[in-house]
Structure formats: structure tokens, C-alpha cells
């Protein structure tokens, strides 16, 4: 039923990924291997969860740049609480704590956006500074490298391990399941609940949504709480996998994450965005980060490559739209 539609970003990004892999395999046949795949999947966990969160906001017609600060806040304060108060807390509870902190911070965004009606970019720009400033001033600014046992346990759990033909080890951490879970849950919310459809509806036309009786404020509030919760989850996973809680981590990633989502076809104007596209966008960014060197481009050119991808990936559809508009009477 579905034909290859080249005007869709998803198709475009998928083709670029395939092309990249083909080039990489030609220049280094060992590229096509389990370690490459597991590195890719591993590198995509935190970025992927962030991207899913950012996509939900973009679909609703907003933009959130504070989620990295929320993640850092939730991750660091959870670790601190564990270390100083409850070292024995099992990891699922620690994760729940981090998610809860994230959701609470997201609720602050939600209040300013849904109930004060402030523009999303400005609010999250402000809360980015607030969350980060609060964290570093009042919670702490020192690296915690001695993670609580439960988090270390978590990071050691693997879905599978193996040894490659050339003797290199590979493994996929349990945390990958978190990304899978987030994707499934978000898919369910977006596509199977009225709440999710309302998110799309608001992104399509806030005024129309209001006119048919969608509770726009409640939906917006939910979005930012949900994004906060996902950020909390991504944060604690990041710390567990890095085996260190660094309060300076993560912040600074926000624009790249949004870029990955837009690369995957989500529109900045709202109403359009898919999980497939988002994951493809993340895949491409991680691939470029991990493996640019394989296709003969030095890794110092990494950010140029990502920049070019963003410009081409968003520029092509924009240019097509502009030409179509000029053609139309």
C-alpha cells in the first residue's frame, strides 16, 4: 500500500542512512558487524528518549529546550539522594524517583505555558537556566563518580553479550529496553488515546481545538509533564551508563536533539511528526557521530557533517514547499 515517497523526510533520511552504511561497508567491510550495531543502539538510548520527548512537544506546536537541564537535575539529585540517604534503594525505585523529579520540573514548564500562556521557547529557555542554576547552586556541582550500588548493578545488566569474529566484545545494555518502552508508550499515547490525538489537533490548529471543546490547557500541561518525566528517565540512564553523575552533562545537547527530530520530518510549525522519523533522525546523528571516520571523513569534521545534514534535510523540503507555493496561483 505504501509507495516510496521521496517528498517525505523519513524516506530521505532512511536513504541517507543506507547510503552511509553502504559507503562505510565498501571502505571497511568490518563495518557491517554486531559491535557497530550495538554501539549504534547504545549511543541512541539517551538521545532517542530525548528525541521522542522533543517530538511530542514539536507535534503540539511548541518547542522545549529545557529537557536537558531537567534530565541533569533529575539525574544528579536522584543520585545524590541515593548516595546520601538511601544507598540501598533498588534501581527501579531510583528510576521512579528520577522520573518523578523530571515530571515535577516539567510541570513547572507546563504551568507557565498552559496557564500563563507564555511562549514555549521563552519559558523553556528561562527554565533551562533556572533548573541548571538551581542544580549547580543548591544541589551540587561536584562529580559523583562513586555511584550507588543499585545504579552500578543496572548498568551491568545486558540484554545480550557476544564476541565478534575478530575477537572484539559487544553487548547491549538493559537500558535499551527503556528506549523501546518509551517508544511503545509514546506511540500508544499519540495514536491510541484521545489525549494523543488532541496533541496532534492542537498542533494542527489551537483555535479549532478550542472551538470543538478540547481542553487545550490540560493537554499542554500533560505534554510538558510527560516530557519532564522522559527527561528524568533519560538522565538517570545516562548517569548509570556513564557510571558517573556529572551535573554538567547533557545540557547543550538540546538543539542537536531538536535537529534530529526535525530531520526526521517533524514540523516546527506543529501538527506533524512521527516516531519512525524521529528514530531515523537519531540513528543518522548517532551514525555520523560514531562512524564518520569509517567513510574517510576525519572526526574533526563531525559537526560540519551534522550541520550539512540538518541544512540539507530541512532545506530540501523547505525549498520544495517554496517552489510549490511559487508555482501555485
Amino acid at each position: 500500500m505504501k509507495r516510496l515517497d521521496f517528498s517525505r523526510n523519513e524516506t530521505l533520511v532512511a536513504l541517507v542512512i543506507l547510503g552511509f552504511c553502504a559507503l562505510a561497508t565498501i571502505s571497511d567491510p568490518s563495518f557491517l558487524s554486531m559491535p557497530t550495531l550495538t554501539d549504534l543502539l547504545r549511543g541512541g538510548i539517551v538521545l532517542g528518549i530525548f528525541a521522542v520527548a522533543a517530538m511530542v512537544v514539536l507535534v503540539s506546536g511548541g518547542i522545549d529546550v529545557s529537557f536537558t537541564a531537567i534530565a541533569a537535575f533529575a539525574m544528579y539529585s536522584t543520585t545524590l539522594i541515593l548516595v546520601s540517604l538511601a544507598p540501598g534503594l533498588p534501581w527501579p525505585l531510583a528510576f521512579a524517583l528520577s522520573v518523578g523529579i523530571g515530571a515535577a520540573l516539567g510541570a513547572i514548564n507546563g504551568i507557565f505555558i498552559a496557564f500563563f500562556g507564555l511562549p514555549t521557547l521563552i519559558v523553556t529557555l528561562g527554565t533551562l537556566s533556572i533548573f541548571r542554576g538551581f542544580l549547580l547552586t543548591f544541589v551540587g556541582s561536584k562529580l559523583i563518580s562513586n555511584l550507588p550500588q543499585s545504579m552500578r548493578d543496572f548498568s551491568k545488566q545486558m540484554l545480550f553479550r557476544g564476541t565478534n569474529a575478530d575477537g572484539s566484545f559487544f553487548s547491549l545494555p538493559l537500558a535499551f529496553l527503556a528506549l523501546v518502552g518509551v517508544v511503545v508508550l509514546t506511540w500508544f499515547i499519540l495514536n491510541r488515546t484521545l489525549l494523543g490525538r488532541s496533541i496532534f489537533a492542537i498542533g494542527g490548529s489551537v483555535e479549532s481545538a478550542r472551538r470543538i471543546g478540547v481542553n487545550v490547557r490540560a493537554v499542554q500541561f500533560f505534554i510538558y509533564v510527560y516530557v519532564g518525566a522522559l527527561a528524568g528517565l533519560a538522565g538517570i540512564i545516562h548517569a548509570s551508563m556513564a557510571r558517573v553523575a556529572n551535573p554538567f552533562d547533557l545540557v547543550g545537547l538540546e538543539l542537536s536533539v531538536i535537529a534530529a527530530v526535525v530531520l526526521g520530518g517533524a514540523r516546527l510549525t506543529g501538527g506533524v511528526g512521527t516516531l519512525t522519523g524521529t528514530l531515523l533522525g537519531v540513528t543518522l546523528i548517532v551514525l555520523v557521530r560514531n562512524s564518520l571516520i569509517v567513510i574517510g571523513i576525519p572526526s574533526t569534521w563531525q559537526s560540519v557533517a551534522i550541520g550539512v545534514l540538518i541544512l540539507v534535510g530541512t532545506g530540501l523540503p523547505a525549498w520544495q514547499a517554496k517552489r510549490a507555493a511559487a508555482r501555485a496561483g
Binding site: F200, A201, G204, S205, S208, I212, G271
Partner: peptide
């Protein structure tokens, strides 16, 4: 019309 341009015909009709 206050429709949702990004949604399908079926969904626009069924939403309310």
C-alpha cells in the same frame, strides 16, 4: 471550517 489540516478526514469527522 475550524478543521485540523494535519489530520485525516475520518479523524476530523470523528473527533468531536
Amino acid at each position: 471550517f475550524s478543521l485540523f489540516p494535519n489530520l485525516t478526514v475520518a479523524e476530523n469527522i470523528g473527533f468531536s
